[in-house]
């Protein structure tokens, strides 16, 4: 019997991940890891992506627009999937169909958002390295990805067996997480 087929094993794994994350975040390890990451961010500015982002302002601005467009698509997929879980939208379409189809759009949009985000980060790597809001955003994004792949999708695979209120709470959590990712992301531009 593999670990993941035990009852609540996935819940236990996610809880352990959260505890480990909180412990690392509150310990001295956080500062140490941040200091050790400085060379990585300095190197990012010297890569071709970093040089391109610094040299061609118009390319940087176009990638920003691409980042916004893919964010809109990602947000749309999240909103429709969550609104369906809350029973607000597309109730005449089976839940599993809406969730699967929206997830496919979400995954493509996430890919474009992350790629354009990496390009933008390379152009201004050392600047964002010193911005707390950049790290809040990375944290929110990490929580979002963990939530989607380790909590939400495994739960929805057995949606009929899950309590309806659990599904609604999943939708609310998802909306709050992705709002935080987008809002902290926008705030990077206002800082520094």
């Amino acid at each position: 019997m593999s670990a993941f087929s035990l009852p609540y094993s996935r819940s236990a794994a996610v809880a352990a991940l959260l505890v480990a994350g909180a412990w690392l975040g509150l310990s001295d390890w956080r500062l140490q890891a941040w200091q050790e990451l400085l060379p990585l961010f300095e190197w990012m500015e010297t890569t071709p992506l970093g040089v391109a982002g610094k040299t061609w302002g118009a390319v940087f601005a176009l990638v920003q627009a691409l980042h916004l467009l893919s964010m809109a698509l990602l947000g749309g997929a999240v909103l429709v999937a969550d609104a369906r879980l809350l029973g607000l939208l597309l109730r005449e379409v089976p839940l599993a169909t809406v969730q699967q189809r929206c997830h496919r759009v979400f995954a493509w949009a996430l890919l474009v958002v992350v790629c354009s985000g990496v390009f933008m980060a390379c152009g201004v790597a050392v600047k964002v390295y010193y911005l707390p809001v950049f790290w809040y955003k990375m944290l929110a994004l990490a929580v979002g990805v963990v939530f989607v792949y380790l909590v939400r999708r495994p739960l929805l695979r057995h949606a009929d067996a899950v309590h309806p209120w659990t599904l609604r709470l999943v939708a609310l959590a998802s909306l709050m997480i992705w709002f935080s990712v987008a809002a902290t992301g926008r705030w990077i531009g206002f800082s520094g």
Binding site: L73, G75, G76, L79, A183
Partner: peptide, 11 residues
């Protein structure tokens, strides 16, 4: 900017 996710997301 965030309302893009509602307007353009749906569009």
């Amino acid at each position: 900017v965030l309302a893009l996710m509602i307007s353009l997301g749906m569009l």
